[in-house]
């Protein structure tokens, strides 16, 4: 029974924080008469979101969502596969990993203009941005997972005379799953961030582009509404990954 109480508390706590922030924000904006162009009140942001979603925002929302998902769906299996291959061939891992780290640490925003120079301003360049940002983080976490197998578990497979493939399927891969999911979660976050960055840098569509566009017209409420939609995408993606993870990983170590 206690456990149930805790899980309810776990759910209620962040909701409570949301309510507190919402009310304080609303109060501060109203009490100090902050102009809505500077900082709109949350009530007005939500109102503007609901009023304008269909006519102004939905098409951009769908474009952004599709770009993120396309990139993500390409990046996840590629990242895991690259991680698996590199972890099994140490020399490859040694040869490539410094460049992967360079790719991860280089801010994507400096690469996007180059990509656009080569590929134009369409969605392809944004998908490329997602892939370039998400694959390395998924790959690096996967490598950590594939390398973190306990020696005794490998010895078990050796004592059974298992092949390298059998060992990978039965031990190395399931053992790596929790790290792989950490990579996928980060990959989801990075995908969202990189699409928005790419949309801000260039092009005329997508939520990132709309944030800049509406800010330019001092339509702050609409800009905030777009930010809310970005958050919605990010949170939904992270939560869905969490649900998949908990369905796949049913055991405790």
């Amino acid at each position: 029974m206690k456990k149930k109480d805790f899980s309810r508390l776990n759910f209620l706590a962040p909701v409570l924080v949301f309510i507190v922030i919402f009310i304080s924000w609303e109060t501060i904006v109203n009490v100090f008469h902050i102009p809505r162009q500077v900082l709109p009140s949350p009530v007005n942001i939500f109102k503007s979101l609901f009023d304008n979603f269909i006519p102004l925002l939905s098409s951009h929302f769908l474009i952004t969502l599709r770009t993120i998902l396309t990139g993500f769906v390409i990046a996840v299996p590629t990242g895991i596969l690259l991680g698996a291959v590199l972890s099994q061939y140490k020399i490859l891992e040694k040869a490539i990993s410094p460049y992967v780290i360079i790719l991860v640490t280089t801010p994507l925003i400096v690469l996007v203009p180059l990509f656009m120079l080569w590929l134009g301003f369409g969605t392809n360049v944004r998908i490329l941005a997602v892939i370039a940002q998400a694959i390395p983080v998924i790959m690096l976490n996967s490598i950590t997972g594939f390398n973190s197998v306990e020696k005794t578990k490998l010895e078990l497979m050796e004592s059974l005379g298992a092949t390298k493939w059998q060992t990978f399927v039965k031990v190395t891969f399931p053992n790596a799953l929790s790290h792989v999911f950490t990579g996928i979660t980060l990959g989801g976050v990075f995908s969202t961030i990189s699409v928005i960055s790419a949309e801000i840098v260039g092009g005329k569509t997508g939520l990132g582009n709309r944030i800049i566009y509406f800010s330019g017209f001092i339509e702050t409420e609409l800009a905030f509404a777009c930010i809310l939609l970005v958050i919605l995408i990010g949170v939904t993606l992270a939560t869905s990954i969490g649900v998949v993870r908990d369905t796949v990983i049913k055991w405790k170590n």
Partner: peptide, 20 residues
């Protein structure tokens, strides 16, 4: 090789696979 099928090995730790 196949001689290993005539041997059973018990480890220091139980060495069970937690995911199975």
């Amino acid at each position: 090789g196949d001689i290993l099928s005539k041997i059973g090995f018990v480890f220091q730790s139980h060495n069970l696979l937690p995911w199975l």
